[in-house]
Design a protein around this nucleic acid. Structure first.
Length: 601
DNA sequence: GTAGGGTTAG
């Protein structure tokens, strides 16, 4: 390059270029004249840093093909450029360039390797990454802390925690980024407790965390749902004067909610000097996860009021709240909003939509969304199957299930809860048995108590009480209240007093403080005309002051949500509602329906 | 010119 005279006309023209387009024109001219100037031109393009689009990068790459001997600076710049896009083809290009430079005998430096490792990480290309790792050891570059950290990152995204740990343990230089990357990798792989231990170890080595470390540590606390730990970390931030930024604030809001402390979450949220859409999403979805659906919607309305545009995370959380409150109107509004803003009903949001429609009683709308989805994953299928089962459409639920293998979607444990409950509702004993068997034999899934409970329910409803009992005795895991409860339910339907009493004993051992079993048992006695015993059950419940599971329901009429709790008479139109309920119960009674749960209180 | 951050479903 030094051979080019400083007064070269093309160089001075180059100084005047203001855009890639102008440089392209100049390049067309120079290409024909002196090849060496292409390299100069190219260096200029590099320093202009116009790599905002893959197109401009490809263009730069195409120029390099004309350069006789590109140097390491050019390769580094190109590899950096291609590794800067979160796209597989770009990452592959970066890796190809790395190979190319090696073939040309150029020796990568401490800048090259982090760039190319970033590309490997982006497309989770472990084999390429391992080659680069090997290369770094051979050339002695592996002592560079940047290379150590990008190697750890690579193994972390590939999910190989052992290798992350190895690189960390064997490296002579570690900095805050190394520790943070290790902590992050552990959290990601579900070892949150260990991540926290590593954080404390880091503190013992007198390193002070910064915001990025704190965000990850807080996410570990959130995963653990450990409030006292989370609070301790919050205090650490105060003591070490770790400044809040919006990321830290969001992580705190999320942590407090996942630890079940909505008050602190709201306090942090309220004190945040800057909030973004993620802050709002954390609060809304966190409240919904805590079962505070109405509160979640109130926050959503506040967000609307300040004019902040919801994103797909917001919409998923709001749909979740709608589903649980049965607010079809708002759910439909969200759907319309999506259409208007060209948000496709795919992925998380499509699944949330299916769930919302089916829980709000619009099973056909749910089906429409499900059918219109471009890609369906196990969540989509499960939501649809569970929804159909809930609506008593067992045949259709099982039909959807049968489509899963050909779609290449593997059912999981929750899918089978849907499948088995569909069989149970439809009384499909043989089919249920088959699916239960397939669960472990074909799909290699371990049945959990929910699945055993479904089977007991299935057998029990069908009157196969003895078999249901044996089924429980043969369980490889400890039966819980769900399983015994299913058997007690069967005893109620088929008036099995003696067995009911035995099961009742088991349930009292497991869940002595719950009222459900007493109510069922009392109903069993009533069915057997043993009124005295039935009354005794109710009396015991009162005496022991049992924790009542509050029966709760809600309905939305003209945009207003009306919530009802068991024994709650606070609704302004309570009297009218009670009268209507009584009439309905009477009519049901006249039609031969004697279920005590619908009789007037 | 190099590395580490938060929120979503059945």
């Amino acid at each position: 390059m030094s051979s080019i005279p400083q007064n070269s006309p093309s160089l001075s023209c180059l100084e005047l270029c203001k855009s890639t387009r102008e440089m392209k024109q100049l390049q067309a001219l120079t290409m024909k004249t002196r090849p060496i100037q292409i390299q100069l031109l190219y260096s200029k393009i590099m320093s202009a840093g116009d790599f905002s689009s893959p197109e401009s990068l490809s263009y730069a790459r195409s120029i390099v093909k004309h350069v006789e001997s590109p140097d390491i600076v050019i390769y580094n710049a190109l590899i950096k450029g291609f590794s800067g896009f979160n796209e597989k083809s770009s990452s592959f290009e970066a890796m190809a360039l790395f190979k190319e430079m090696m073939m040309k005998g150029l020796v990568p430096d401490t800048y090259t390797l982090p760039y190319v490792l970033k590309a490997c990480a982006q497309c989770q290309s472990l084999s390429h990454g391992e080659q680069v790792h090997g290369h770094s050891i051979k050339t002695g570059l592996s002592s560079s802390v940047y290379i150590v950290n990008t190697l750890m990152r690579l193994y972390a995204v590939c999910g190989i925690i052992v290798s992350v740990r190895k690189v960390f343990d064997y490296s002579s230089h570690r900095d805050l980024v190394s520790w943070t990357t290790l902590i992050q990798a552990l959290v990601k792989m579900g070892h949150a407790r260990e991540a926290i231990n590593v954080f404390f170890q880091m503190c013992r080595e007198n390193l002070i965390a910064d915001q990025r470390t704190m965000v990850i540590v807080l996410s570990a606390c959130a995963r653990l749902g450990d409030l006292s730990l989370g609070t301790q970390i919050h205090r650490y931030m105060h003591d070490n004067i770790v400044d809040y930024d919006v990321f830290v604030g969001n992580a705190l809001v999320d942590m407090y909610l996942k630890c079940g402390h909505a008050t602190s979450a709201r306090k942090v949220f309220g004190e945040m000097p800057v909030r973004n859409v993620v802050s709002w999403n954390s609060l809304i979805s966190g409240l919904a996860q805590q079962g505070q659906f109405k509160e979640a919607l109130d926050v959503f309305y506040d967000m609307q009021t300040i004019g902040l545009k919801p994103d797909s995370f917001t919409l998923v959380a709001v749909l979740n709240a709608c589903a649980n409150l049965g607010i079809l109107e708002l759910g439909k509004w969200i759907h319309a909003y999506m259409d208007k803003n060209h948000i496709p009903s795919d992925g998380f949001i499509g699944n949330a939509l299916v769930d919302m429609y089916s829980k709000c009683g619009s099973i056909e709308e749910a089906f429409k969304v499900f059918q219109g989805m471009k890609c369906r994953d196990v969540y989509s299928y499960t939501a649809m199957i569970v929804g159909l089962a809930m609506h008593g459409e067992a045949e259709r639920a099982l039909q959807i299930f049968s489509l899963m293998p050909q779609a290449g979607v593997k059912p999981d444990e929750v899918t089978f809860v849907g499948v088995l409950s569909a069989c149970s509702h439809a009384g499909l004993v043989e089919e249920g048995r088959q699916h239960f068997q397939d669960m472990s034999k074909v799909y290699n899934l371990k049945p959990q108590t929910e699945h055993y409970g479904c089977m007991v329910d299935l057998l029990g409803r069908a009157g196969l009480i003895r078999e249901a009992e044996e089924f429980i005795l043969q369980m490889p895991i400890e039966p819980d209240a769900f399983v015994w409860g299913a058997l007690l339910g069967a005893c109620r339907i088929h008036t099995k007093v003696e067995l009911g009493e035995t099961v009742m004993g088991k349930l009292m051992d497991i869940e002595p403080g719950r009222d459900g079993a007493y109510i069922l048992m009392s109903n069993i006695y009533s069915s057997a005309n043993r009124w005295k015993d039935a009354l005794k059950m109710r009396k015991i419940m009162k005496e022991r002051n049992l924790k009542k599971t509050p029966g709760c329901s809600s309905i939305e009429v003209d945009g207003i949500v009306h919530e009802f709790q068991k024994g709650d008479n606070s609704h302004p139109r309570n009297i009218e509602i009670r009268m209507l309920l009584e009439q309905m119960a009477l009519q049901l009674h006249n039609y031969g329906h004697f279920d005590s749960t619908v009789l007037p209180v």
